[in-house]
Amino acid sequence: MALIETQNVTKIYRPGDTEIHALDHISLQIERGEFISIMGPSGSGKSTFMNVIGCLDKPDSGQYLLDGVEIGRLNRDELAGIRNKKIGFVFQGFNLLSRTTALENVELPMLYNGVPPEERKEKAIAALNRVGLGGRENHRPNQLSGGQQQRVAIARALVNDAPIILADEPTGNLDTKTSSEIMDLLVKLNAASQMTVVLVTHEPDIARYSRRVIKFLDGRIISDSSPG
């Protein structure tokens, strides 16, 4: 069984009189342990697809099975629970809580699934060590570089042992050197723990790190290939 499976997933926006098919009957399967990139120009539907598979949004029609669970039937709080257990998000803008230490940022997902405080701290420190930020637990986001902030975000995505990391333009705000460090880290995590990585990007250089590239245009998949 595929980890992520969509069947005819459709999402339509109606700004005014026009209808925009942000997703137009998308059927796709992503297996456990894959490292894939989703590419396309802005407005191609790749972000909407990302929101749907990240359980931040529900499809208007079609089915989305995550780890065998039909997502379309779940309510708001059940979706939150799924996001908590199955998905780790990494965003372009890092999306860390300011005024909050790296450690507490990484602890955040565990606040919402009842992990006791000591265990929370232990796991958060372990996750920070995995992304190479051991010893910076008490730094705040504004005391860290962009690359370090993104590492904190990755540690936060890892900490609940979610099977999927969804990275939306994770290197968009970083310089080339830092970008490759972050990508190396994602590759390492994917290889070491069979973690599925879904990457949204418009940079071919970044997409090259993945083994499979899916291209979106006007809400449709126009190509699905391994870059060789």
Binding site: A80, R83, N84, F89, N95, N113
Partner: peptide, 16 residues
């Protein structure tokens, strides 16, 4: 608002 979004993304439920 953004903080709320982050919390929701990592699993905060309505009552949280």
């Amino acid at each position: 608002t953004r903080e709320i979004g982050i919390r929701m993304a990592v699993g905060a439920k309505t009552w949280d």
